[in-house]
Simulated assay, not measured.
Amino acid sequence: MLSRTADSLYWLGRYIERAGNNARGLQVALRMASLTRGVDQRDGAWRALLVASGCEPGFRATGAAPTQEAVVRHLAADPANPSSILACIEAARRNARAVRTALTVDMWEAVNETWGEARRTTEATFAPDNLPAFLDWVKSRTILFNGAYADTMLRDEAWRFVRLGTMIERADNTARVLDVHHHALAGAEGQGAVAYVQWQAILRSVSALRAYHWVYHARLEPQRIAELLLLRPELPRSVIACYARIEETLEDIAVAHGGRRGECHRLAGEMHARLRFGRIEDIMAGGLHAFLTVTIDRNIELGRQIQDFYLQA
Rank of each mutant, 00 (worst) to 15 (best):
N173K: 10
A118R: 02
R31P: 00
E189A: 08
C242P: 01
A218Q: 13
R97K: 13
R204T: 02
A48T: 11
A118Y: 07
R42C: 05
E117N: 15
L131M: 06
V71W: 01
R298N: 13
V99K: 00
L86E: 10
R237L: 13
A133Q: 12
E123A: 15
I16V: 15
L35G: 07
F291C: 05
M167Y: 07
A29P: 02
A290T: 14
D156H: 14
V39P: 01
I246L: 09
G190Y: 08
C242Y: 02
R274F: 04
R31K: 15
G262S: 09
L185V: 07
F145L: 09
T122C: 05
S238Q: 03
E117S: 13
R237H: 15
D43W: 09
I16M: 15
R47A: 10
D7T: 05
V39S: 14
S34H: 10
V239T: 06
C242E: 01
R60I: 08
A201D: 08
A65D: 10
V215Y: 05
T104C: 05
H265K: 09
I168W: 01
A244G: 14
H182Q: 15
A6D: 10
R224Q: 08
L250H: 00
W159M: 04
L230M: 13
D172V: 06
F59I: 01
R245I: 10
A98I: 10
D282L: 14
A65M: 12
